[in-house]
């Protein structure tokens, strides 16, 4: 069942060249999607539009059949989607547990343990954690929000291969076991291969591979 729909979305930075040129697609719960494409092709822009960080010039983005503009972008970000960024984006004066508690509709500690952080680690300063651990905290924060859609922008971009594999497996678990809709923007073909559906964004068009 489609949790999000993209309908004829057009976006341009300068109003001359369209980065997204009337793209449409539907995203289902319980699936992991990967969006591939060259740098500057508009992958992150598409993710921002899905997450309500920006608005399309034309077209609509629906969440559960409702236009996210009508839901309210801040409200949409708060209730319906959760972001995971390449640079983790954790708040440096909060512990991992407190970072997770920022969005928490669920109790942070079990989620942190589920993504592989011990109780001791979840009380440390986030900047003293490794990159992999920080990304786990970011995933835990996304899960704690209980949002149905997780939007991940190059989530393994800063991680070594082993850690990247672990992170991907957690995201897969989110999609398949927790029935989230996980959308990953990536350069990595290896990562894309793990997804249930792979899109390629080229010349403003979204093609399913």
């Amino acid at each position: 069942m489609s949790i999000m729909e993209i309908q004829k979305v057009r976006y341009s930075y300068d109003n001359k060249r369209n980065v997204l040129n009337g793209i449409s697609t539907a995203l289902d719960e319980g699936k992991m999607y990967a969006i591939l494409g060259q740098s500057g092709c508009g992958k992150t822009t598409l993710l921002s539009l899905l997450g309500g960080l920006d608005s399309p010039l034309d077209g609509q983005i629906l969440y559960d059949g409702q236009d996210i503009e009508k839901i309210g972008l801040a409200n949409h970000r708060k209730k319906n989607v959760a972001f995971i960024f390449q640079s983790y984006n954790l708040i440096d004066y909060l512990t991992p547990k407190e970072n997770v508690a920022l969005t928490a509709k669920l109790s942070p500690q079990p989620i942190l343990e589920r993504v592989g952080l011990t109780e001791e680690e979840s009380k440390r300063n986030v900047l003293k954690l490794s990159g992999g651990q920080q990304q786990r905290v970011a995933i835990a924060r996304a899960l704690a929000s209980d949002a149905k859609v997780i939007l991940a922008d190059e989530p393994t971009g800063n991680l070594d291969e082993d850690t990247a594999t672990e992170i991907i497996s957690i995201l897969k678990e989110c999609a398949h076991q927790m029935k989230k809709c996980v959308v990953i923007v990536t350069h990595s073909n290896e990562l894309a291969k793990q997804a249930d559906t792979v899109f390629c964004l080229k010349k403003g068009r979204l093609q399913q591979l």
Binding site: A74, F83, N89, L90, L102
Partner: peptide, 10 residues
């Protein structure tokens, strides 16, 4: 930090 807080809907 502002960006992070905005991204989580604050």
């Amino acid at each position: 930090e502002t960006g992070i807080l905005l991204s989580i809907g604050i």
